[in-house]
Design a protein around this nucleic acid. Structure first.
Length: 887
RNA sequence: GGGCGUAUAGCUCAGUUGGUUAGAGCGCCACAUUGACAUUGUGGAGGUCUCCGGUUCGAGUCCGGGUACGCCCACCA
C-alpha cells in the first residue's frame, strides 16, 4: 500500500470517491444491506432548472447529506430523492432574455410551440449542470428516482390534483382583483411582488360641488371607477349620509356613489372617508363584496383607461389620465388639498413594472371552503376524524398546532401561523407559456375540467399555466408515484421524515406542501421542517454579482475541497440564522481536514498492521481508559445531537472536533508515542489508536464523506464507510485519572522542563530535568494542584514497577496523585447536580471543605461563596448546621 | 402600520430546561518546533454578556420597558 502523502489533497480523491459511492448503488435504499425496517426519507427541495448552484444550495446539500448519511449508518432504510423545479416564470423570463440577446426575437416571434422547445433545451442543459454539481458536493442522493416538476409523471399528478380540487369545489374560476404586471402581461402572485417606496401626491377633493363628503386618494384616475364612499360607522360627521346614494358626473363619467359604513375605515386618516374602487383595489374589492357594490373596470391590461372610464380619460395611459383628472378637479374647484406623501407601491419582481390591480377571470384555490377530511389509512393524522369538515386553513393550523409537523427552529411557528391565519385565496393561473397548462377546456359558456381533454369538438384549452408552486407543493408525493394510491414508494416513504429548506420559502412552499398532502392523502408530508439560514458574505451582505462578493461553492471545492466547504457551511451556524461565510473560514476547515488526515497518517505509520478493530480494546494505562471513556462520551453526545429531535449539527461537530483534535490528537497520540515503545503496552496501544480512529472516521463521515472514505480505504475493508454501522457506546468504564495527568503536565510544560508520564503506575508522574534547580519550581507548581503528599527527587531512580521512562543520569520527581485525582473526579461529578438551594449549599460545603480547591480558587471567590451562603442562611433558606460546618 | 428576530472577546459565533471562575474557532502576543501535521504545539492577553428595571438564594439565560440593526407581511385610501 502506498504511503499516504503528508497533506491531504482533495482534488486527487473526490471525483473517484464520488463515482465509487454512486456506482455502489447504495444511494438507493433498496440496495442497502441488512434488514432495515425503520425508514428515513426526504425529498430534495428542487433547485430551479435555470442556473447553477450557489452557496445557498451548498448549505442545503451539506445539511441534508449529513442527515441522510447519519440515518443510513444508523441502519435506517434511507431515501433522499433528487429533482429540479421548472420554475415557470423565472425560466421563461430567462430564456426570453437569452432569445432577445442572441437572436433579437421575442417569444411571440417563435410561437408557443417553438418557444417551449427552446425552453426545454435550455432546461435540459441546466439540469445536467445541476446534477453534476450536486454530485460533486458528495451528496448521497438516489439518482434512480430523479424527478422534474414538469415531466410527464408530475404533469399527470398536477392534472389529477387540479381536477380533484375542482370537483371538491376548492378550485374555482373567479373574477377577482389580482396583481397584474402590465409589462410582463401576466398575473403576479403576492410572492413575486417587490414593494418599493416612492413619493406620491395625496389629493383631497370632492366628486362634485354638491357631494357632501370630501375624500382623499393618491390615484385620482381610478376614481372614475368608484361606486361608493366608505366611512367609519361611528363617525359622527358622516352618520347622516350613510345609506344614501348620490349620482354625480365625475370627469366625464357618470357615477352612482353610495355612502356605506365599514369598520375597516380609519376615521383619523385623511378625511375619514374612503372612495371605494372595487375593480382596482384588493381592499376595496373586499369591501364591495361585503356591501354588494358594483365593480367597474376602468383600467385595462395595458394600464390604459377603458371606455367605462368615461369620455375624458378613455384610452389614456394611467399617468396621463391622472394628470388630466387633477387638472379637471382644479378647474372645477373641487381640489381642496395636495400633499406629498411617501407610499409603497408593488412592483413585479421579474420586470420591475408597477403592479396594476385588475379584476380578471382566474383560477383560485379556496382556502376557507369546508370539505370532508379523508383520513389516510396508511398514516392517519392524530386529532382529525375521517369525514370531519375542515378547510385548507384549518388543516394548516392543525398540522403544526398538534405537533404532527414540527418546525425547527420553533420560533418560525409564529411566522407560520401569522401566515396561515391570514391565508387568502391562492391565484394559481399564470399568463405564461412555460409550465403546467391548466387542465380546463372551454366551449362558449361551458367549462370542462379533467385529466384529459374532453370528447367532441370545439373545446379550447385554457391558455394559462399554473403557478410553479402548485406542482412544487405536491413534491413529496408526486415524486413517489401518486396519483397511484398504492404506488410502492408512496407506501414506503411517505410521509417523509424531514423537509430541510431555507426559511425564506416557509410560506411560499412549505405551507402549500402541508395542505396539499393533508388534502390529497390525508397525511402530513413530513414530520419535521428544518429551516436553514441564508448565506451572506463576511460583512453580512447578500451575495450578488453587483457587489462582487460571491463565493462560488465549486471554486471553493477545487481550492479547499468539498469536505472543508461543507464544514464551513454547517459548523458555526444554527437553524433559522444566516451564515456569514468567508474564504478564510473555509481555509480554516481545510486545516482541520488535514489534521484528521495526519492523525490517521500517524496511526497508520505507527502500527505494525493497519486493521479494523471490531471490539473495544482492553485498556491498560490511565491514558487508554481515559481516551476510551472520552470516546464513549463523545459518541453519546454526538449521536443525540445529530439525531431527532435535536438536529444540532453544528454543536455535534464542535464536540467531535474537540475530541478529535483536543483529546485524541493532542493528548492520546502524544502519550501513545511513549506507550508504543513499551513491549507490554504496544499491542493495546495500537488497538486503541486504531479503534478510536475508526470511530472518529465514522462519526465524521456524514460531515466529510470524502476524506473519511479515503482514509477508511486504508483499512482494506470491503464494506464502504457509507454503510458502516454508526458507533455505539459499548460500556462505560470506571473514571480514569488522566485528567489529573493533564493538569500536571500543563503546569510542567509551563516551566519548560522535559517530562514523561508513567502510564501504568497510578502513583505518580516522573519529571525528568537536568538539574534540581529546574525541578524545584515544579514542586511548588505541582503542590498547588492538590493535596500532594510528597514530592521526591532522585538523580537516578530505580525503575518503578511497570515504568518505562527512566533515564540514567537524569533527575526525576515522583508525586502521588491520589489527591489530585479525587479532586478532579469530585469536581466533574458535582457539576451536574445542582438543582435547588439545598444542593447548592451541599456543593458549596464540599467545595469549601476541599482545601485543594480552595487553594486554587481566588480568595475573593471563596469569600464570595461564603457571603452567598451567609446571605441565604439569613433568609432562612438553608440549614444552619451546614453553615456551621464550614467554620 | 403590524409581526418576527438579532445584540456575548478585535472578527465569526456557541451557550439545551436559570447554577461552580461565561466558552470555541479565527486574529493578536510570547515561546517551542528536522517530531503524523510550518495546514503544527503550548501558554497568554482580551468580555460591566446592548441599556434600564423586575422575579430569584442565584440571571447571558425568565418577565417588563428602552435603544440599535436586520427580516417578513401590508396599495392609511
Amino acid at each position: 500500500m502506498p504511503e499516504l502523502p503528508k497533506a491531504y489533497e482533495p482534488s486527487q480523491h473526490e471525483d473517484e470517491i464520488a463515482l465509487k459511492e454512486r456506482e455502489s448503488g447504495l444511494y438507493t435504499p433498496e440496495n442497502l444491506p441488512g434488514n432495515r425496517t425503520e425508514v428515513f426519507s426526504m425529498v430534495l427541495p428542487p433547485p430551479n432548472a435555470t442556473g447553477t448552484l450557489h452557496m445557498g444550495h451548498a448549505v442545503m446539500l451539506a445539511i441534508q447529506d449529513i442527515m441522510v448519511r447519519f440515518a443510513r449508518m444508523r441502519g435506517k432504510k434511507t431515501l433522499w430523492l433528487p429533482g429540479t423545479d421548472h420554475a415557470a416564470i423565472a425560466t421563461q423570463v430567462k430564456v426570453e432574455t437569452l432569445l432577445m440577446k442572441e437572436e433579437g426575437k421575442t417569444r411571440h416571434d417563435l410561437g408557443r410551440e417553438a418557444f417551449l422547445q427552446k425552453v426545454d433545451a435550455f432546461v435540459e442543459k441546466s439540469r445536467a449542470t445541476i446534477q453534476h454539481q450536486v454530485r460533486s458536493m458528495g451528496c448521497s442522493i438516489d439518482w434512480t428516482r430523479e424527478a422534474f416538476t414538469l415531466d410527464e409523471p408530475r404533469n399527470l399528478a398536477v392534472r389529477t390534483m387540479f381536477k380533484k380540487m375542482y370537483d371538491d369545489g376548492l378550485m374555482y374560476r373567479g373574477y377577482r382583483v389580482i396583481n397584474w404586471d402590465p409589462v410582463g402581461q401576466t398575473v403576479i402572485s403576492n410572492d413575486e411582488l417587490v414593494p418599493k417606496e416612492r413619493t406620491g401626491t395625496l389629493y383631497t377633493f370632492k366628486y362634485s360641488k354638491d357631494f357632501p363628503i370630501t375624500i382623499a386618494t393618491t390615484r385620482p384616475e381610478t376614481k372614475v371607477g368608484d361606486t361608493a364612499v366608505a366611512v367609519h360607522p361611528g363617525d359622527e360627521r358622516y352618520k347622516a349620509f350613510i345609506g344614501k346614494t348620490v349620482s354625480v358626473v365625475f370627469a366625464g363619467a357618470s357615477l352612482d356613489i353610495q355612502v356605506i359604513a365599514d369598520e375597516e375605515v380609519d376615521p383619523a386618516f385623511g378625511t375619514g372617508a374612503l372612495g371605494v374602487t372595487p375593480a382596482h383595489s384588493v381592499i376595496d374589492e373586499a369591501m364591495a363584496k361585503r356591501h354588494d357594490l358594483k365593480m367597474i373596470q376602468v383600467i385595462d391590461e395595458k394600464a390604459r383607461m377603458t371606455e367605462a372610464a368615461g369620455s375624458t380619460v378613455a384610452g389614456l395611459p394611467v399617468l396621463e389620465a391622472r394628470e388630466k383628472i387633477v387638472t379637471w378637479l382644479r378647474s372645477e374647484g373641487l381640489l381642496e388639498k395636495e400633499e406629498e406623501t411617501t407610499q409603497i407601491v408593488s412592483t413585479a419582481e421579474r420586470t420591475g413594472a408597477v403592479i396594476e390591480p385588475l379584476p380578471k377571470l382566474q383560477w383560485f384555490v379556496d382556502v376557507e371552503k369546508a370539505f370532508a377530511f379523508k383520513q389516510s389509512a396508511h398514516m392517519p393524522v392524530a386529532g382529525l376524524q375521517d369525514g370531519q369538515m375542515v378547510t385548507i386553513q384549518s388543516l394548516l393550523q392543525h398540522a403544526v398546532r398538534s405537533k404532527a409537523v414540527t418546525i425547527i427552529p420553533e420560533r418560525f411557528e409564529k411566522s407560520y401561523f401569522h401566515w396561515v391565519d391570514n391565508y387568502r385565496p391562492w391565484c394559481v393561473s399564470r399568463q405564461l407559456w412555460y409550465g403546467h397548462r391548466i387542465p380546463a377546456w372551454y366551449k362558449g359558456e361551458e367549462v370542462y375540467v379533467g385529466v384529459d381533454a374532453p370528447e367532441g369538438s370545439g373545446w379550447e384549452q385554457d391558455t394559462d399555466v399554473l403557478d410553479t408552486w402548485f406542482s412544487a407543493g405536491m413534491w413529496t408525493y408526486s415524486t413517489m408515484g401518486w396519483p397511484k394510491e398504492d404506488a410502492p414508494d408512496l407506501r414506503e416513504y411517505h410521509p417523509t421524515t424531514m423537509l430541510e429548506t431555507g426559511y425564506d420559502i416557509l410560506p411560499i412552499w412549505v405551507v402549500r406542501m402541508i395542505f396539499m398532502s393533508l388534502y390529497t392523502l390525508g397525511e402530513i408530508p413530513f414530520s419535521y421542517v428544518y429551516l436553514h439560514g441564508l448565506v451572506r458574505d463576511d460583512q453580512g451582505r447578500k451575495m450578488s454579482k453587483a457587489l462582487e462578493n460571491i463565493i462560488d461553492p465549486l471554486t471553493m471545492k477545487q481550492k479547499y475541497g468539498a469536505d472543508a466547504t461543507r464544514l464551513s457551511l454547517v459548523v458555526g451556524s444554527t437553524p433559522g440564522n444566516d451564515v456569514k461565510l468567508s474564504e478564510e473560514k473555509i481555509a480554516g476547515y481545510r486545516n482541520f481536514v488535514n489534521k484528521l488526515w495526519n492523525i490517521a497518517r500517524f496511526v497508520f505509520l505507527s502500527v505494525e498492521e493497519v486493521r479494523k478493530v471490531e471490539t473495544t480494546p482492553t485498556p491498560i494505562t490511565e491514558a487508554d481508559t481515559w481516551i476510551l471513556n472520552r470516546l464513549n462520551q463523545t459518541i453519546t453526545s454526538v449521536t443525540s445531537m445529530i439525531d431527532e429531535p435535536a438536529f444540532l449539527f453544528s454543536q455535534a461537530a464542535e464536540v467531535l472536533r474537540d475530541f478529535t483534535w483536543g483529546d485524541f490528537a493532542d493528548w492520546y497520540v502524544e502519550v501513545a508515542k511513549g506507550q508504543l515503545q513499551d513491549e507490554v503496552l504496544k499491542q493495546s496501544t495500537e488497538e486503541t489508536l486504531l479503534y478510536v480512529l475508526q470511530n472518529v472516521l465514522k462519526m465524521w463521515h456524514p460531515y466529510m464523506p470524502f476524506v473519511t472514505t479515503r482514509l477508511w480505504e486504508e483499512f482494506g475493508s470491503d464494506k464502504m464507510l457509507l454503510i458502516e454501522d454508526w458507533p455505539e457506546v459499548v460500556d462505560v468504564r470506571e473514571e480514569g485519572s488522566f485528567e489529573a495527568f493533564k493538569e500536571i503536565i500543563t503546569v510542567i510544560r509551563g516551566t519548560r522542563a522535559t517530562y514523561k508520564i508513567d502510564p501504568v503506575k497510578k502513583v505518580g508522574v516522573m519529571i525528568i530535568g537536568e538539574s534540581v534547580d529546574v525541578l524545584r519550581p515544579l514542586e511548588t507548581a505541582i503542590r498547588q494542584l492538590g493535596r500532594v503528599e510528597s514530592v521526591t527527587f532522585a538523580k537516578t531512580m530505580e525503575r518503578p514497577e511497570g515504568s518505562v521512562f527512566l533515564h540514567a543520569g537524569e533527575y526525576a520527581v515522583y508525586i502521588p496523585l491520589a489527591g489530585v485525582i479525587d479532586l478532579v473526579a469530585e469536581r466533574a461529578r458535582l457539576s451536574g447536580e445542582l438543582k435547588n438551594v439545598q444542593d447548592y449549599v451541599v456543593v458549596l460545603e464540599k467545595k469549601l471543605a476541599n482545601t485543594g480547591f480552595i487553594d486554587k480558587a481566588p480568595v475573593e471567590a471563596v469569600e464570595k461563596e461564603r457571603g452567598k451562603l451567609a446571605e441565604a442562611a439569613a433568609k432562612g433558606e438553608v440549614l444552619t448546621q451546614q453553615i456551621a460546618a464550614l467554620g
